[in-house]
């Protein structure tokens, strides 16, 4: 298991604006521009990016689950098909810590609504940035070993039970990077992401495409495929 700490988070203003629903045709008020500048700077000050990952061999894939080394089982249910030909599963957790979330709550309580919402979006962009950096780090390493790497999937996606966050917790012990699970298997801090990727020499092409392809939530706001 590896812990990554020196992660250079990148927060693009355009991405923050996109998350806030900004369309390029809408002129930005100078006050909103000012708040964006301040909160992006504040975001960089508050983020505490950390990540961890581990690579486990795949022992068996049956109709509803993936059995890993040490007999850990991922209950992916109806989504096992794309995992066939996986030789390993890499499980990763990323977070930006809780300081930014605390500041968002303070801003809300102070009535600084725009600042709160902008900083929250900065946090979302920051944790996605950690997620991307870790994924690409893993991708490069696996590619060097001659493996294909799948797109990212996570418990809660499609029919994959969110309860498997508990399995990930047992495998990775996320307290080491400050992540805990609540009773509903949600990660705290909220700005945390877990993901799994399959690696293998003959990975199924379906596994390399967007995870939205195996998720039945056709109207989801985050959906990236038709």
């Amino acid at each position: 298991m590896q812990i990554l700490e020196n992660i250079n988070v990148k927060v693009e203003k355009e991405e923050v604006l996109r998350l806030l629903g900004h369309s390029k045709s809408v002129p930005l008020l100078s006050e909103i521009e000012r708040i964006l500048r301040i909160e992006i700077r504040e975001g960089y000050r508050l983020v505490e990016p950390k990540a961890m990952y581990t690579k486990l061999g795949v022992k068996e894939i049956d109709s509803s689950s993936i059995i890993l080394d040490n007999d850990f089982i991922l209950h992916v249910n109806g989504t096992t098909r794309p995992w066939r030909n996986s030789e390993h599963v890499i499980i990763a957790l990323c977070t930006i810590g809780s300081a930014l979330e605390r500041r968002v709550a303070e801003l809300f309580n102070e009535g600084n609504l725009v600042s709160a919402v902008v900083l929250d979006s900065v946090g979302s962009v920051a944790v996605e940035s950690v997620d991307d950096l870790v994924y690409h780090f893993i991708y490069q390493r696996e590619e060097e070993l001659g493996f294909s790497v799948s797109s990212r999937l996570e418990p809660g996606c499609g029919e994959w039970s969110l309860g498997d966050q508990e399995v990930i917790k047992k495998i990775l012990q996320p307290a080491k990077i400050g992540i805990k699970l609540n009773e509903y298997c949600m990660m705290i801090p909220e700005k945390s992401i877990s993901f799994c990727v399959a690696t293998g020499k003959e990975l199924d092409s379906e596994m390399i495409a967007s995870p939205c392809q195996i998720c039945g939530m056709n109207n989801c706001k985050y959906r990236s495929v038709e």
Partner: peptide, 17 residues
């Protein structure tokens, strides 16, 4: 009509408040 976005609405809400 997509002529403003969320922060504009929140600024207005703050003014209203």
């Amino acid at each position: 009509k997509n002529e403003v976005f969320l922060p504009n609405v929140l600024m207005a809400a703050r003014a209203m408040k």
